[in-house]
Simulated assay, not measured.
Amino acid sequence: MSLSKKYLKTKPICKVTFKLPKDESKQANVALLSGDFNNWQPAPMKKLKSGDFTLTLDLDKDQAYQFRYLLDEQTWENDWQADAYLPSPLSYEDNSVVIV
């Protein structure tokens, strides 16, 4: 899993690309991204020919956002290369954090 960030020069925005590699997606057919940035409403990620999943979002700079991946609408997974991890207020799991 990986995050790539591209900061815009003209706006206080960062384009963050979330990438879930095929070998870390547990053979999922569908991957959804949920987090603070979308009120935890799952957003579909695009499945590439390689089997990887990806989604790019415009996020406000100088913020930290918690997020997780939802695989096949049943299994939650963290991004193990996230910027940080925080305990989830809803479970005993941690949430991934991206800092922009």
Score class of each variant (00 low, 15 high):
75 T>M: 13
8 L>E: 01
59 L>M: 12
43 A>M: 12
89 P>V: 07
25 S>T: 06
84 A>Q: 11
87 P>H: 07
75 T>Q: 14
37 F>D: 00
62 D>T: 10
51 G>H: 10
31 A>N: 13
94 D>L: 14
14 C>F: 00
44 P>R: 14
50 S>W: 04
85 Y>M: 04
6 K>T: 07
81 Q>A: 12
72 D>Q: 11
95 N>P: 03
97 V>K: 00
39 N>W: 00
30 V>E: 12
82 A>T: 02
30 V>P: 01
12 P>E: 03
35 G>Y: 01
66 Q>R: 15
8 L>A: 03
64 A>S: 15
13 I>F: 00
49 K>G: 02
87 P>T: 06
40 W>E: 04
65 Y>Q: 02
96 S>V: 05
43 A>D: 01
36 D>E: 02
58 D>S: 14
21 P>W: 08
86 L>I: 13
76 W>R: 09
46 K>E: 14
25 S>P: 10
64 A>F: 03
97 V>C: 03
95 N>A: 08
25 S>L: 05
72 D>C: 08
66 Q>Y: 05
20 L>W: 01
23 D>Q: 12
22 K>S: 12
20 L>T: 04
76 W>A: 07
31 A>C: 15
77 E>P: 04
65 Y>A: 09
57 L>E: 02
70 L>I: 09
9 K>Q: 08
97 V>I: 09
26 K>R: 13
56 T>S: 15
71 L>Y: 02
51 G>D: 14
84 A>R: 13
82 A>Q: 01
21 P>F: 08
21 P>L: 06
41 Q>S: 12
33 L>T: 13
51 G>N: 10
67 F>I: 02
71 L>A: 00
94 D>C: 08
86 L>G: 01
86 L>T: 14
35 G>F: 00
26 K>S: 13
71 L>Q: 01
36 D>Q: 01
54 T>F: 10
15 K>C: 03
20 L>M: 11
30 V>L: 04
69 Y>L: 02
91 S>A: 09
72 D>I: 11
80 W>D: 12
60 D>P: 04
32 L>F: 05
93 E>M: 10
75 T>H: 12
72 D>V: 06
78 N>C: 10
